[in-house]
């Protein structure tokens, strides 16, 4: 990796990375895939997030689903750990709480494959920095 030498380097890198993400999220690319994020902070792991992550990685592989499973930090929903976020290209991200293996399986079969939402969604209750004027 070449070192970043200036703010312009950084901005260029940001826009490259950003367009990669956009292609994935907006699904312009036929190869775009679903992304699932698992909240893997201490609290999430303690309530079983690791098991869910392992299940998702295995199951998406076995079922030949075009899904990327990644880890992220705490989403803040301690009342409903473990939590995961499903991003289907071109759709708003959806967060699910209290995910166990059974629920994860249902999410793969219904939401990921067919775009059907299932019970256990956690509504977004905050604004982001970009939504704050």
């Amino acid at each position: 990796m070449a070192k970043i030498k200036s703010l312009d380097d950084l901005k260029k890198m940001q826009s490259d990375l950003q367009s990669k993400i956009n292609i994935r999220e907006q699904g312009e690319n036929p190869e775009s895939h679903v992304q699932i994020k698992v909240a893997m902070a201490t609290c999430g792991i303690a309530s079983g997030a690791k098991e869910i992550m392992d299940f998702l990685i295995n199951a998406t592989g076995k079922r030949n689903l075009d899904v990327v499973v990644t880890q992220t930090g705490c989403m803040g929903y301690c009342h409903s750990e473990p939590t995961i976020e499903v991003n289907r290209p071109g759709e708003d991200p959806v967060i699910y709480g209290d995910v166990d293996v059974k629920k994860a399986d249902e999410i793969l079969e219904k939401h990921v494959k067919r775009g059907e939402l299932v019970d256990g969604i956690i509504p977004v209750t905050h604004k982001t920095i970009d939504e704050t004027k």
Partner: peptide, 8 residues
């Protein structure tokens, strides 16, 4: 802002 959004 990035917690639960990015891969840390």
């Amino acid at each position: 802002r990035n917690c639960g959004v990015i891969n840390p």
